[in-house]
Design a protein around this nucleic acid. Structure first.
Lengths: 187, 187
DNA sequence: ACGTAAATAGACAGAGTTGTCTATTTAATG
DNA sequence: CATTAAATAGACAACTCTGTCTATTTACGT
């Protein structure tokens, strides 16, 4: 084996993640990936059969990392209602770090959701995971039942999704902050 | 002049609209556009300087058509609260017609929002237009003030956006229907 | 009916795409 | 230390991409 630093597969995915998110999957060539990852083309095709396999691996890893990070943030908050609001704060910070590129799953869905069923399936899992996570927090939140558990879950789920998309349109977190304040009023 | 049927520029935009939305801008080649529009390549480049100019014209026309259609639908509803709910019904129908491809502006933003400032500006205008339209209906709705006018506007705006994005992920209108029912409870 | 403006088909340049393959070098393991 | 598995550089095939250009044909307005 070579490559004493970072493992090759990781370097590929790190670079692909950065480029796919910033430029889009279709606008990112294999040649740019290998150059910026500083690896050989033959190495890339030894780890991944096709470019689409890299996209799938990227979406899968993004799903894992997204959940790990979100859970870590929320677990640091004790108040059960504040946990719900922490979801919004977390995504405000994430979008700032990401340069307001929007949701990586929605982006991947728009670019390859129709062409690769594996990618679509992973994206659907990620969104169901998000909803499930919100639901568990809603149930334990002790909110004031202006809406039912089911309804509040749904509202937070769609509002968060829309607010992130709009943050990407306006390149600022205003819509996420506004959504947070309204949810705050409803719990 | 030639082309006794539809004008050439219209055929280009009709075809581009269909292909850009279904496959994505980057995944659609000029050659596919001219073939399916049944026009010559030289004709296309006499009407548009670059491919990106076609994207811009597509986004602009989509903005116009979107608003015209939405306004027509809502104006047929008389009850001021029902007008707000008609927005959701309208988008449920539109997504069914569109094959659950999500919002064309968000898609265009994801693919070219960073590279072409003209496209980004038009998308921002479309979203501001949407919010303004919702706000006017909210103000006249006589809703029960669980939320302020400002807050209800914001909530409908982000929930609609998120619900459409999720309809595209799950390829069904469930999230838009769910969002509608919750807004119904809040007005 | 004629001149003109516009549309046509299609070749072409130049660059970029994914993916394959060869030949070489490197590093870890028995 | 030798073997072996993995990474390397880079050429290459086969396409596809955008955009240009030429030569030809069509149809409308005067």
């Amino acid at each position: 084996m070579k490559q004493r630093g970072q493992a090759v597969a990781d370097k590929i995915l790190d670079t692909a993640e950065r480029l796919f998110y910033a430029q889009g999957y279709s606008n990112t060539g294999i040649n740019q990936v290998i150059e910026e990852a500083d690896i050989a083309k033959a190495s890339l095709y030894k780890h991944f059969e096709t470019k689409e396999d890299i996209l799938l691996a990227y979406v899968q890893r993004t799903h894992e990392l997204w959940f790990t990070r979100l859970q870590a943030t929320v677990s640091k908050v004790e108040d059960p209602k504040e946990k719900l609001l922490a979801i919004f704060d977390h995504h405000i910070e994430r979008q700032k770090v990401r340069g307001f590129g929007g949701c990586p799953f929605i982006k991947a869905n728009d670019e390859a959701g129709t062409s690769d069923p594996r990618v679509l399936a992973e994206i659907q899992q990620a969104k169901l995971h998000s909803k499930k996570f919100i639901r568990a927090l809603v149930v334990k939140s002790g909110h004031k039942k202006v809406l039912s558990d089911q309804e509040l879950t749904e509202m937070i789920f769609v509002a968060l999704e829309g607010a992130i998309a709009l943050a990407s349109v306006f390149k600022q977190p205003g819509e996420i902050q506004a959504a947070k304040k309204i949810i705050q009023k409803l719990i």
